[in-house]
């Protein structure tokens, strides 16, 4: 059990701030540890989403989670984008800023997908260099999330968990550890998820994600469209024992049910957290 290097607060359990729930959140003011926003949804708007966010940020801690930092891309970094991310973090007093270990596009395009990296020395050096620059620009540590992946590259010279542990160390960045993604990738690639968890440097983990997925028989898709399955809850318990308690977010981004359903699922994480605290005591 470790604390994270930056002493980020354990904010308890949180949920994603999503448009279908705006009215409920402002009207009912539910007891939620924090809200996570999808960064890009608030960068170029002066409309209702930003107006709602300002009100939510007055009452709750906010954390920012992006999908376009493209840390592994061989395209140049987008400094205009980073400036907007920095300004939004300041506006919302974001507790931390996160994105993914992936790339989203090259030659000036954005596929808006979290595309996989080959886990090579070249990709590691390249990505670590970019993450260091990003952190310098943002003037804060960035937490990077382990992705769900659907293919593996033959030229990879290390496992994903080795790549992520080395990236975090060489870039001196944080990690957002997504337990469901480990489960998804473990099924898709046939590895033991506990081996992955054991290799993660706990002192760099700032935050956990949990989510539901879609099982297609031959592979699993990370769809954030359902309840968290029991094996993922078990892995979450294992992660809590191995790494320690961290702010935990329940992601539900497709077929979004009423807020109370999402919140109840998030609160199950609190039950697991309490159980592990009792076990540790």
């Amino acid at each position: 059990m470790t604390r994270n290097l930056w002493h980020f607060k354990d904010l308890g359990t949180g949920v994603g701030l999503r448009a279908p729930h705006f009215g409920h959140i402002l009207g009912e003011k539910p007891e939620v540890g924090f809200f996570e926003i999808l960064t890009e949804n608030y960068l170029d708007t002066g409309g209702r989403p930003l107006y709602i966010l300002d009100q939510v940020a007055e009452r709750y801690p906010i954390v920012m989670h992006g999908v376009s930092m493209s840390v592994g891309s061989t395209d140049p970094l987008d400094f205009a984008y980073l400036a907007k991310v920095k300004a939004l973090a300041k506006r919302t007093k974001a507790q931390w800023v996160s994105d993914h270990v992936c790339w989203t596009g090259v030659v000036g395009r954005n596929t808006h997908d979290l595309l996989p990296l080959p886990y090579t020395e070249e990709a590691l050096r390249h990505t670590a260099d970019r993450v260091r620059i990003i952190q310098d620009v943002l003037e804060r540590p960035v937490a990077l999330e382990n992705p769900s992946t659907y293919l593996e590259f033959v030229p990879s010279s290390m496992t994903e968990w080795e790549f992520i542990a080395r990236l975090a160390s060489e870039a001196d960045c944080g990690l957002l550890f997504d337990v469901n993604n480990v489960y998804v990738s473990a099924f898709n690639h046939g590895f033991d998820p506990k081996t992955y968890i054991d290799a993660i440097p706990g002192e760099r983990v700032c935050h956990y994600h949990l989510a539901g997925h879609t099982h297609k028989g031959t592979h699993i898709l990370d769809t954030h469209s359902d309840y968290v399955v029991d094996p993922v809850w078990e892995l979450y318990g294992y992660t809590l024992r191995r790494i320690g308690s961290r702010a935990t977010l329940l992601e539900w981004d497709a077929d979004i049910p009423p807020f109370d359903v999402v919140h109840a699922e998030a609160l199950k994480a609190q039950v697991w957290r309490d159980k592990e605290v009792r076990r540790a005591a």
């Binding site: 890009e40 960068l43 170029d44 708007t45 376009s68 596009g105 000036g108 395009r109 954005n110 808006h112």
Partner: peptide, 8 residues
């Protein structure tokens, strides 16, 4: 094609 960080 999208050339922006946002799908909006």
């Amino acid at each position: 094609p999208s050339r922006s960080y946002t799908l909006n």
